[in-house]
Amino acid sequence: MSAPAGTVIFAADDPGDELSLLDILDHVLNQGVILRGNLIISLAGVDLVYVGLDVILTSVETALRHIAASALPPQRE
């Protein structure tokens, strides 16, 4: 997300669509899921999200596409 200086960016009353994976992980993992986390967020001693922002944004798009593609009509059980 980027916008001109001086503006406040709000996202999103429709979560999942506008939010970055970074934000999702920040909140979803905040209560200290076992952040075996050094492993997740660190690569060669560097925060993964810092070096891998593009990757992490791509990942969320891929994830959303995959989930959407799986949204088949509900099956009766």
């Binding site: 999702i24 992980l25 979803v28 997740i40 990942s59 891929t62 994830a63 989930i67």
Partner: peptide, 11 residues
Amino acid sequence: DWLAEASVAHQ
């Protein structure tokens, strides 16, 4: 990729 899909679904 796994983490993205699972955490987005969770959220």
